[in-house]
Design a protein around this nucleic acid. Sequence first.
DNA 1: GATAGTTTGTATAGCCAATGAACTTATTCG
DNA 2: CGAATAAGTTCATTGGCTATACAAACTATC
Lengths: 395, 395
Amino acid sequence: MTSTGPARQASLRERNLATVARAVVDAPEPLSRADVAARTGMTRATVSTLVDQLIEAGLLTELPAVSSGPGRPAVPLAPAARTVVGLGLEVNVDYLGGRVVDLTGEVVDEIVIAENLRGSPAPATLERLGHLARDLMARARGMRVAGAHLALPGLVDTRANLLRIAPNLGWSDVEPLALLGLPASLPATVGNEAKLAALAQLWGCPVAERASRTFLYVSGDVGIGAAIVIDGALFGGKRGWSGELGHVTVDPAGPTCRCGASGCLERYAGKEVLVTDVGLDIDVADDVLVDRLSAPDARTAVSTAGAALGQAMADAVNLLDIDRVLLGGVYTGLVPLLRPAITEQLRTRVLGAPWAPVDVVPAPVADHAALTGGAAASLRAVVEDPMPWIAAAAG
Amino acid sequence: MTSTGPARQASLRERNLATVARAVVDAPEPLSRADVAARTGMTRATVSTLVDQLIEAGLLTELPAVSSGPGRPAVPLAPAARTVVGLGLEVNVDYLGGRVVDLTGEVVDEIVIAENLRGSPAPATLERLGHLARDLMARARGMRVAGAHLALPGLVDTRANLLRIAPNLGWSDVEPLALLGLPASLPATVGNEAKLAALAQLWGCPVAERASRTFLYVSGDVGIGAAIVIDGALFGGKRGWSGELGHVTVDPAGPTCRCGASGCLERYAGKEVLVTDVGLDIDVADDVLVDRLSAPDARTAVSTAGAALGQAMADAVNLLDIDRVLLGGVYTGLVPLLRPAITEQLRTRVLGAPWAPVDVVPAPVADHAALTGGAAASLRAVVEDPMPWIAAAAG
DNA sequence: GATAGTTTGTATAGCCAATGAACTTATTCG
DNA sequence: CGAATAAGTTCATTGGCTATACAAACTATC
């Protein structure tokens, strides 16, 4: 209730350090101190001291100076490689794994174990993942791990780091962090798989490829999750349960869903429906499914799913006023097939469509995006608040 | 793209002034300087200088000291009455008007003209409203008008202050601010009626009655608009077109909507449908309609509308993770009638419902809420950034 | 009814961080 | 080689918050 805290002198430092760090990390190409000053409006003197601190803390590095034109050549700055890293973890129906990413966005290390985890025992599986995570951390010796984010396919209470229910894993009411057994000093949180994957689209790839800062990310798998990103910020809702697109009603008279309601999107466009429509097994690889759905006799299956997806998306767009949708998960490869039906729905059902059509594109980061997103989220926290790292480096 | 600006020393002042102003304005009862210090974490010395400036600027006042218990009696602080005011304006299908509100939340003055404005000519009507607004400003001589917000029932591009389309007025592509002819020095914006009404729920009533800071406000009239408020901030979407709940699809095979799509919520729970269901005219007063819908023979009409409303709300809640819905407009009085059908839908369709049921309550501010909300929005801007007012008072 | 006790509000010295202007450094161009 | 140019650094100055001490205004008690 009580607004934001007081602004002390130290707050100035905090904010300006973050501003400088952001400027360098988010820049498409290396900036000099002078560039940063011009871009942020600070004086070169201020930027200089801040940059020095960020270098000292291991968050930025100086690249070799290159001279172009008259004047003293600029010293280009870039995020430091392999000094501070983030750890992304995930358990999903068909694999479990971890990925280590550094501030440059490079994947430093990863372990991914493909395996069917439907109905696996939560404690044992999470203990295995914890072991895997500790292995990764041991292999990252010399680098400081900023934090870990665990992605799970289900309803995660982000305030309590509690998994309420993950229907496809068959898990419910799990406290995953306790079972992982990570060092207590490591900031760790649990998040929904789709939301962390969305963050990967925002930060987890080279700057040029990054998604615009406002979009809806839709992740198709057995369940259909979504994440809402507005102006570079994830919109999680009150408990982090936003984006349950899979249970938006497509037709109230439709088939019953696992969730107990009727006519949910999942029953029209979920992976289970897609595979059975074309006579495949749920464990089929995504590219095989895409191939099979490209065949002429799969056209009605595809257009039915696309229409349902488009209808649900239209509802979301009408509620949220978003003009860009990224399709991830199984849908990534299906974009060309699904797009006609989707855009038709968006065109007719979105009230604002005449003035700004909605873009539907495949998600740029596809490969285990939630792992990258989880790692990137930890790193983002460092960029947004570098002060603790300065203090630690000085101490 | 380029992050936030630099933090100068002056930024500290700006932020702390805002923090103090917020603390006093949002407090349920008057706070002393010492209270503010304790609550914000600043020192009494700092708070003292800041409070003095805010008093000087006419934003706060000292109330007579009351002594209770030992020690020097505290001087209670409160928002100043009738010094700075906000102006809310609105054109809707059945009236046009303006309202002047001060920092205490009191309505200082208002002019409301009940009148059927469907199909009225936009330029003439807005010029009339402009005249009315100038009258109100003249009558508020001695008070400083912080800003004006015009509420319109339609798609408003909040970045360009452009009305794209207001189907119920029959207006399209209007630039309302130019037609109002307000003084150029007055900050003025145009907004959607439902969104400004939602802001009234947040700020426009005595603190105790204020809605919690996260809710969905649904305004039922001919159209059905909604506004999403998360943590005290309106979620407008990219252009301010969020909350088009009236065009969420209830049944893709349903009747055709004015918007061209089929089965929109508006066709099940809009006022037009409600009145024709019970044989009334569209111009009927809201309380007459409520009375008529309370009759036993209106039960199916009510439950059909409630179920549709509940289904659309469930979609919204699944996407947004909000656990409180305020019903405004015609719906305010219908809450007891509609609630059973609505909550049934929410209970079965909202994925998170087992862990946190959704509250459905009538909106606390009902009477021309958009007027109050528009005025309150201007005042909120003053509270959130008092610095310019300090400077003006000093100069 | 004077005095101790308590809390509010104000004054003053000190500190921290950003500024601006001058200065140094490193390059290109003529 | 020197003039021009731009990057980065140094340093006195300024603004704003903190801490500490102090003045003010009240209650409670002997």
